[in-house]
Design a protein around this nucleic acid. Structure first.
Lengths: 348, 348
DNA sequence: TTGAAAGCGCTAACAG
DNA sequence: CTGTTAGCGCTTTCAA
């Protein structure tokens, strides 16, 4: 209703009001000023719903999260950093964030978000390499919707994704332990349906191989990224330490590392004294333990901004232009790989 | 375009399609079935933007967060729990979540979110009692928009809010220390522009008074809820412990408690041995320290669901009906107060 | 440089 | 019970 009043007060047509407010098409400076003044005077605020409808764009980026209340498989640190990063970029580029919790019961239908126009693009966190997920992603791709995965790649699929260099990170971690004189390095990994986990295994194995060490099978421990899963493996690791078949542990995330440290402490084994340990994520928790936990720092925040920027770029280009070269960032096909670094603390 | 096809295939008018899909108004079962089948066959999905526009409702709950990337004044634990809770309730009640990071540079304009129809209701996290904030909230209230504060109350304002019983929690924590035989209890609080902090002070003071203890002024320490601020007060606390004017500390959140413990450890003082300490939030971190940190558990997740339920209720009632009585939950005017509990660990 | 007018896809009176 | 019709508030041709 008010837009009409603005038009009247400024003595122009409604179309002109629209042009001025969107700064589109040619216009006389005088009209522009007149309209702006009228709008300001009336305190006019365009109706976002009408705009979205007329433009056929929601102006939203969908952010898809696994819904795991109270089941902290993922660290909250991880999500909140990435989310903040996405939020910063989205705000800067004029988009809002629509938060969508994936229902673990149902098989996902991401393409529907686009068909119903709820989002213009979307970013997926905590995605896993399982059949329903691949199907849902492939459908989005097929229908030409822009989306970006964070921290999960589907090698043969050419989905846009942003990841950190976990192979390098794991090599660093392993190298670090080797440099410190540890040679019997167990590896506590997470489930292999995360490409993340596979990368870490690759880096770990490669670095050991480079050092001419054949890793024993019983060095491989499988957790699920939760603290509990690390904690529960303490006895087994303690035996390894006692029998001298293990002198250090590289854990695929801090949560498991911390759980393991706690379990071992209860068995009388101290990190940094009786064994060395390196975690992954450089989360808040790594600074809370004693001794402090050496860890691989991942630029989650930057991964979030990168994901938002790239996916909006794809949206703008209609997916036509090739992926942009970004200064200093490795790119492998449609995957952007950000560098990680090692934070050394007392645990190693 | 497709809705027309559905109408044609089903042999009815577009309006009827609308009725069936929204299950509104009377309709013959046969028509209903026919339309549903046609819709399913054509894979019809209504356009959300058009619906929102026609209904003049966005279907979104705005969730407003302080934007503090990399400045972890608030624990990520706190936000992700509340957010998950809001998400669960929103999904259950058919709403989406629009995430909005408050720009710390600008004074907030929450009412605008409603005027532009971006949201139908909103929930504010990490709100502070400062003038710009009060103004922005009062404006929303004046314009009749439904909103709910979480963990922050404005006593004289009658804003809808959900909080935990921090007075009781602080009494519990203090009582616990007294029961353990500690009588010189320092209190490390956060800034008083959070009603949270004021509540804690009240509880602490009340419990000491009840025990007939006059608290010394130098027992009051002020941090800002960050780990660092706790850490930096270690020397001062250490002096207190050395001079026997302090034998225990109650900290207003876990982060500060943990920082303080770390600082004191560096000065050779161990929690649970040389002094007792109790934190607040029962965050992940409280389980990571050694000794484990006794802490007050706050039902963040439930606070989130409660906030969403209450604010949507207000939306539905057009703010007319009085606040509903919720079983077993204390209510003080427009504030719902959830109970907290004490988790005892080795630090006390 | 501006105005008139035709939608965007759906909902919601109002008739019938 | 169902069809007709008039918008919702804005954008965007197309003419002028």
């Amino acid at each position: 209703m008010t837009r009409k009043e603005v038009a009247k007060l400024a003595g122009v047509s409604e179309a002109t009001v629209s042009r001025v407010l969107n700064n589109v098409g040619p216009m006389r400076e005088e009209t522009r000023v007149r309209v702006m003044k009228a709008a300001a005077e009336l305190g006019y605020e365009p109706n976002a719903l009408a705009q979205q409808f007329a433009r056929r764009r929601s102006g939203n980026i969908g952010v898809i999260l696994p819904f795991v209340p109270k089941v902290h498989l993922f660290s909250t640190y991880y999500f909140s950093e990435i989310l903040s990063g996405i939020g910063e970029a989205a705000q800067r580029l004029g988009y809002d964030l629509l938060l969508i919790f994936r229902d673990p019961e149902q098989s996902p239908d991401y393409a529907k978000l686009f068909r119903t126009q709820k989002v213009d693009a979307c970013i997926l966190l905590g995605s896993r390499d399982v059949p329903e997920e691949r199907t849902a992603l492939a459908e989005m791709k097929r229908e030409g919707h822009p989306f970006c995965l964070v921290n999960q790649r589907f090698p043969e699929e050419s989905f846009l994704s942003v990841d950190a260099n976990h192979v390098a990170g794991s090599r660093m971690a392993t190298r670090h332990l080797l440099d410190r004189g540890y040679t019997r390095i167990a590896f506590l990994n997470g489930p292999l349906h995360y490409s993340n986990s596979r990368d870490r295994l690759e880096g770990y194995a490669a670095e050991l191989a480079a050092a001419g060490i054949r890793h024993a099978d019983d060095w491989l421990l499988e957790g699920n990224y939760s603290r509990k899963s690390g904690y529960e493996l303490a006895e087994r690791v303690a035996e390894g330490i006692a029998s001298r078949s293990v002198d250090a542990v590289f854990a695929a995330n801090d949560r498991m590392a911390i759980g393991l440290m706690q379990g071992l402490k209860e068995l009388g084994l101290e990190a940094g004294r009786d064994y060395a340990i390196v975690g992954y994520d450089d989360s808040d928790g790594s600074r809370l333990t004693s001794p402090g936990l050496t860890s691989v720092a991942v630029p989650f925040y930057e991964m979030g901004t990168m994901a938002a920027e790239r996916v909006l770029e794809e949206l703008a280009d209609g997916g036509v232009r090739k992926a942009a070269e970004v200064e200093g960032i490795a790119r492998d096909g449609h995957t952007y790989i950000l560098p990680v670094s090692l934070k050394v603390r007392e645990s190693s």
